[in-house]
Design a protein around this nucleic acid. Structure first.
Lengths: 335, 335
DNA sequence: AACGTTCCCGTGAACGTTCACGGAACGGGT
DNA sequence: ACCCGTTCCGTGAACGTTCACGGGAACGTT
């Protein structure tokens, strides 16, 4: 019913159509639309009207082909509903926007098998990738075909990739030291449960505990959710009833532990001290507020974007020792 | 130092370069890279090797220009760190992925003045837009130039746009009814504070209160954060000490109120009942768990994507009465 | 009257890829 | 010897835009 004067229906409206309709050339249309100079006021208006009338929208592909400016990076996140990844994503978005880059976000729905498929799709759609990946590096390499990529929160073995390392060693040490100073000697940990090898955080905990002459063996696995944390705490206390303080793999688990402790009638921090890992903003909302070995998620995202930018432009990439965010103990009410 | 045999340095590696290097034609290279059929095994391998050697990556623009398949939509969010928007974003991502679409996310950092700039940038980069916008419709229209757009959580006046309406009338009514049934008669509300007109949710509350013969005037403003909710509750109780139950603009504010209540020594729900709005997953982590007039954020995002898809493909768009998400009371411990 | 300026506007070419075609080489059947 | 089918590969053209250039008209200057 609209006054589409063109005879054929489904073809895309191009700059030619607008030009013909306004009685000018392509170039003049381009000038009008892009606010260029060499064009008369009345002509410009006529072109603009014609464009609006025809419902013309420039093709981003054609434009991108000729002007090499727009850069787009892909951000791959296991689960956007997980507050930790949300914070990282938000900060990555922030730095990308500051550079005028576009970010297309992919959520792998926590299924590692989605990673490769995502990578395949992403590969032909973005200039570089930043994100969390759990699969093997050579497998990643096979699917990226030489695309700049920055891994977050993971060690890299191959020179092929950059990665942002998370150094929580000192922070975890400080956490254990703090608990010891408060008189705790029976300190447990809730670790990640569905990963084959023990986590780095577990290793840090073990080292810190040993350094204080504490048995590092009081560990239980926990699913990566609040409910998982609750269940994990029950399991831990069942196996080691003597535990009076607990360090957790991350804040989500800690929050679940906090809630479970209350249900078990153990006051926090009096009967049970809890320290998490990540330093989520969310932790501050808890009662008592969660103590945590906090890392600067803002810096995490920003660093990753910075590095992928360097890889992209060919500038010299940051050396591994700079690609590191240090976690430090942030005390609140829970310990 | 890499064996880049080409003499000139900065030019992009194209399919021609690979073809020349492998001693074949463009088309053969294309076949090898896209896994097409009519190519010999050994030739394919030779091409693949050459491509890898040269660091060739196809141009997404050139490819997109000729194959009209990839569609990308823009998702505009005020603040990704806000759990509510995160949930909506996650669900939008989910539906988009199911359709094989790409989503580029823009965070306007809660500054309405960023909206138009974002829209301008976005306009030439995506096929359609879904998101939250606070500025006037004719202003939006001016910047979108006819791009399909779906507004979330907002009424639309112009026929130009689609929007997903949030119907909380029945849910809020149920919330008030529940409080009344529990014996509450002095029910307050913490409303959005930095918006000119009173919110829709406030209107629903007023109507529901009046329907139960309750004074709807016990209202205080609250900033959109947990701290804002705490401050709001203090203000509300200062002005109306008789209040025994409170309904809040959203869950974030409710959570702040919950925390503040505990600090004030008022037990929840015994001394003070709290009901929020949104139904965030986060609410379940609180102690006591938050009651809320919950809306299905998953459906919210999915609907928006569905509709923008229809606008995009020219299929008949959903009628306004289907573009609606009903909020319903979900009771937990806090009321 | 010839010439230089300024202001508009249009014409080929280029960006890098895929599609639709055509064609060479090879092998096997009659 | 001829034809036909299969397998593999290459050649124009097209996608829709912008860039670099060139050119005409109008106006003023010498």
């Amino acid at each position: 019913m609209a006054s589409s004067s063109g005879p054929d229906s489904s073809r895309r409206v191009t700059i030619h159509d607008v030009a013909r309709s306004a009685g000018v050339s392509r170039q003049t249309v381009s000038r009008a639309l892009n606010g260029k100079d060499e064009i008369e006021r009345s002509t410009k208006q006529r072109v603009l009207d014609a464009a609006r009338e025809l419902g013309y929208r420039p093709s981003r592909f054609a434009r991108g082909l000729v002007r090499q400016d727009t850069t787009t990076i892909g951000l791959v996140i296991p689960d956007l509903r997980n507050p930790f990844f949300t914070e990282v994503a938000a900060s990555a978005l922030e730095s990308a926007r500051a550079r005028g880059w576009h970010v297309v976000v992919y959520d792998t729905a926590d299924r590692p098998e989605e990673e490769l498929g995502t990578l395949q799709v992403i590969g032909s759609q973005v200039d570089g990738v930043v994100g969390y990946f759990s699969c093997a590096e050579d497998e990643l390499d096979r699917y990226t075909r030489g695309m700049p990529m920055v891994l977050i929160g993971r060690e890299h073995r191959m020179a092929r990739f950059s990665s942002i390392r998370i150094d929580g060693e000192a922070g975890v040490h400080a956490a254990v030291a703090h608990l010891v100073a408060r008189g705790h000697t029976m300190i447990g940990m809730l670790d990640h449960d569905n990963r084959a090898e023990p986590s780095l955080r577990r290793e840090w905990f073990t080292a810190a505990a040993l350094a204080h002459g504490i048995d590092p063996g009081r560990v239980a696995g926990a699913g990566q959710s609040a409910d998982g944390g609750g269940a994990g705490l029950r399991a831990l206390l069942a196996a080691h009833p003597e535990v009076t303080a607990v360090f957790t793999f991350n804040d989500i688990v800690a929050i679940g532990a906090l809630r479970e402790a209350r249900r078990l009638g153990r006051a926090v921090p009096a009967d049970l001290a809890v320290i998490g890992f990540d330093g989520l903003q969310l932790g501050a909302l808890m009662e008592p507020p969660l103590s945590s070995v906090a890392l600067d998620t803002r810096r995490l995202g920003a660093l990753a974007v910075e590095q992928v930018g360097r890889l992209l432009t060919g500038a010299d990439p940051l050396p591994p020792e700079d690609l590191e965010v240090r976690a430090e103990l942030r005390l609140a009410g829970s310990a």
